[in-house]
């Protein structure tokens, strides 16, 4: 029997990529999309083609922060039978083949319904490093922050263009692991261009917080990745652009996985700083 590898922490991962003069590439998937087994194959493909950490979404019936691409992925996952329990099993299976950090993205009702303590305990037990609740601002977050500390899980918060400096400092006191910088004022979804001001936002966040910074929402091609990494972002989360490949290739898994691996390599290469 092989020794179970020690799970890498976010801080170690950021250190690792930094030492190679890179940014972190963090691909996203909705657990169980398009189905449990295929989703596992997709995550394997992510890991084999340069993922430095993983972001796993838990499907929710009313995802207000998500655009049509992620909504559709949620619906596919539901149709294929995903539940909170199965989503945790999904992570447990991922842990069999990788030790890179895993963050989960969840809507707060799923945590609340299970019970905060039980949810965090289950997450820690199954190898989750970080939790981001998309609809939980710091005003309501004290209980989950306590639970995250109790179970050694990083609690991630989002910041955006609209976040004031004062609020940014408050958020970074609650936040651990990394700050999730939302590149666009809007919902998730692939976009042609990065919003103007993303660079200034990264600079502003960096000047008010010592936490690593990861940029997400709308990052959909290697130019975007190059742009934000060269602007001193410590990493990128890519979601909708990857889901679009899943959506567009449901009939042929091999083609889907080939396209995903090529895209991941392309995105990872773009995290190399000059």
């Amino acid at each position: 029997m092989s020794v179970k590898p020690v799970i890498e922490r976010y801080s170690q991962m950021f250190q690792r990529v930094k030492s190679k003069n890179e940014g972190a590439f963090i691909p996203f998937i909705v657990a169980g999309d398009p189905d449990f087994e295929t989703a596992l194959e997709i995550v394997k493909t992510y890991v084999e083609n340069g993922a430095d950490a993983l972001e796993i979404g838990f499907a929710f019936s009313d995802p207000v922060a998500d655009g049509p691409t992620v909504q559709e992925a949620n619906i596919r996952a539901f149709k294929a039978g995903i539940t909170t329990k199965k989503a945790f099993e999904f992570i447990k299976k991922i842990r069999k083949f990788t030790s890179i950090p895993i963050g989960i993205l969840v809507y707060y009702n799923l945590i609340y319904k299970m019970g905060i303590d039980k949810f965090y305990k289950t997450a820690a037990y199954n190898g989750v490093n970080a939790i981001l609740a998309a609809d939980l601002p710091l005003e309501e977050a004290q209980d989950v922050v306590n639970a995250s500390e109790k179970y050694g899980i990083e609690q991630i918060f989002m910041v955006a263009q609209s976040t004031s400096n004062e609020r940014l400092e408050k958020i970074s006191r609650f936040c651990s692991g990394f700050l999730y910088v939302v590149a666009v004022m809007g919902v998730t979804g692939a976009r042609k261009d990065l919003e103007l001001g993303t660079v200034q936002l990264i600079e502003r966040v960096k000047s008010h917080s010592t936490l690593p910074v990861v940029v997400g929402f709308g990052i959909s091609k290697s130019e975007h990745v190059k742009h934000v990494i060269s602007s001193e972002s410590d990493g990128v989360i890519v979601a909708s652009a990857l889901i679009n490949i899943i959506t567009g290739n449901l009939k042929d898994e091999k083609v889907m996985l080939d396209k995903i691996s090529a895209f991941c390599r392309d995105l990872k290469a773009a995290t190399q700083k000059k």
Binding site: E139, T163, R167, I171
Partner: peptide
């Protein structure tokens, strides 16, 4: 926010961070 919008334990502000300034 100036008030927490709670009625006993109910109510509150469970929205994405992006909406906080608008609220």
């Amino acid at each position: 926010m100036i008030n927490d919008g709670k009625f006993g334990k109910y109510g509150g502000i469970f929205v994405p961070e992006l909406l906080i300034p608008a609220l």
